[in-house]
């Protein structure tokens, strides 16, 4: 791993606070076909106007694993997540510096097509946000957008996506009904299914259960377990139990700085950083 060599070098020379090292979790959890760097951040910063919301992050997100991002409110974790599929472009004052790569290609490059990028990096949001259309049309929205018109193929995709999102059994008999008639938990799983329908490589989950009750939360967590190994998943969460339950790796952000990034079990049982320890033991939030 070339990256590792660089990282060791920089650790040896550079000051630890100014330029953070590229964190690569040393021990890997076994997931077939995964483990290659999928998203790589090098000195990556995000600004809202003059305010630096995310400060010089260096990290590799590994493919096919579930990576959780935790940290107190306003620490930049959502901002970092939304930078990966350039959802922050919607905020006019937002700009970045440093490098953020997806499959070796620059996400913020001049020639990058953000539309194509978002097709490959799907996102599920904090609040369930199905379109005010039928369940079928919601799932078929993405594939239709990308040029699929064949009714039969669409039906297949809709069924496959809903099955993957563990929603098929609940809605198969009412696909023509408006999606806003579903419960909050079902709506959120529908949003996952909708994202899966365009067959992304990465799934970004931005606090996907914060608006749901415990039962619906459990279903979403089960779903994440199901999808693990098929997709690279990144999940921002306020709930540390959730992070420890569903993720392989965990990143801890504090005031825009990536403080610690390690295998989940290790981060929760044996944090290297004092700040991390204080946070996960609940000394501040």
């Amino acid at each position: 791993m070339q990256m590792t060599a660089e990282h060791k070098e920089s650790k040896a020379t550079g000051p630890a606070t100014a330029t953070r090292d590229i964190y690569i979790p040393s021990e890997r959890v076994a997931v077939s076909g995964g483990g290659t760097p999928h998203v790589v951040a090098k000195d990556f910063s995000i600004y809202y106007g003059d305010f630096e919301a995310v400060k010089k992050v260096n990290a590799e997100i590994l493919s096919k694993y579930v990576t959780a991002i935790i940290g107190p409110s306003g620490c930049g974790k959502s901002t970092f997540l939304r930078a990966i599929n350039r959802m922050n472009d919607l905020i006019p004052s937002c700009h970045t510096s440093g490098i953020l790569q997806f499959d070796g290609e620059d996400i913020y490059g001049k020639l990058t097509d953000e539309v194509l990028l978002r097709k490959k990096i799907g996102m599920v949001f904090q609040k369930p946000n199905p379109f005010p259309k039928s369940i079928f049309d919601n799932i078929a929205y993405g594939p239709r957008l990308h040029g699929m018109t064949d009714k039969k193929q669409l039906e297949e995709i809709v069924e496959r996506s809903l099955r993957k999102a563990a929603l098929w059994d609940e809605v198969s008999d009412r696909l023509e009904r408006n999606a806003l008639g579903l419960s909050g938990g079902q709506q959120q799983r529908l949003c996952v299914a909708r994202t899966l329908a365009v067959e992304p490589e990465i799934l970004l989950l931005d606090e996907p259960t914060s608006a749901l009750d415990p039962k619906a939360t459990a279903k979403i967590e089960d779903l994440i377990q199901e999808l693990r190994g098929s997709y690279t998943i990144m999940i921002v969460t306020h709930n540390m139990q959730q992070a420890s339950r569903v993720s392989d790796y965990t990143m801890f952000f504090y005031e825009g700085v990536l403080v610690e990034y390690a295998q989940t079990a290790q981060l929760f049982t044996n944090p290297k950083d004092r700040m991390t320890e204080d946070y996960i033991t609940g000394r501040f939030s």
Binding site: M87, L90, L117, K119, P132, G142, R194
Partner: peptide, 14 residues
């Protein structure tokens, strides 16, 4: 709602 727009753009819509 802004969320509709986010959802659509997030799916790779122009």
């Amino acid at each position: 709602p802004k969320t509709y727009k986010e959802a659509s753009l997030g799916l790779g819509s122009t």
